[in-house]
């Protein structure tokens, strides 16, 4: 097993990671429903979106780590320090603006406005885990554990907290993060789901 920082040539796989990671969340809040496009088209869009060198957010290949087994990419996640290069959400908005037609993006973002009550701001100075996914055939084999310990060793986390946001209905993820020392810090409920902020000191 090889764990390493993502390279430009991994972009196509990272696009898949983004879409895979959101499939365990909340259908109304996914890029698929936001942009109302078929999977293949979304992959092509995110290949372009991820192709930027601005660090400090989850929509650049530069902030991803990947796991490779027998020359095959099997998992990955983004990891970055919030605020290190500006507000990560604003950076991600910029990355989307670079690729997606302005009017279409405004229309798509308007759909998000109804979810503002469950928006949890990321804390500047904390490390953010985002878009975490291991492909199906390799789940349950401790790959995330290896990836997570590699990332912890690679980054200077001394005195810094880590944050991850998950959907309330995604009990598997909540259970897994608890296993790795994350605790629930905030819960924002909505009718049939909710947003949870978990932190690790």
């Amino acid at each position: 097993m090889i764990i390493r920082k993502a390279k430009h040539s991994d972009i196509s796989f990272l696009a898949k990671i983004i879409l895979e990671s959101e499939s365990t969340g909340y259908e109304m809040y996914t890029y698929s429903s936001l942009f109302n496009k078929p999977y293949e088209e979304l992959i092509a869009i995110f290949e372009k979106v991820l192709d930027n060198n601005f660090e400090g957010h989850g929509l650049t290949y530069k902030n991803y780590y990947v796991v490779e087994i027998k020359d095959q990419l099997v998992g990955g996640m983004s990891f970055y320090e919030e605020g290190s290069h500006g507000d990560s959400n604003h950076l991600m908005t910029g990355a989307l603006m670079q690729v997606i037609d302005r009017k279409e993006l405004v229309k798509s973002f308007a759909k998000l406005k109804k979810f503002r009550d469950i928006d949890i701001p990321k804390t500047p100075g904390t490390f953010q885990l985002d878009s975490v996914a291991i492909i199906k055939e390799y789940q349950g084999q401790g790959i995330f554990q290896e990836l997570f310990s590699f990332i912890k060793k690679q980054n200077n986390l001394k005195g810094k907290k880590m944050e991850v946001q998950v959907w309330k209905n995604n009990t598997n993820a909540i259970k897994a993060y608890k296993k790795y020392g994350f605790v629930v810090q905030k819960v924002l409920d909505m009718e049939d789901n909710g947003r949870i902020l978990m932190i690790k000191e």
């Binding site: 930027n52 500006g86 908005t93 910029g94 603006m97 670079q98």
Partner: peptide, 11 residues
């Protein structure tokens, strides 16, 4: 204003 312009804004 391009997406990359936006990504260069910190404040």
């Amino acid at each position: 204003i391009s997406g990359f312009d936006v990504m260069g804004l910190q404040n």
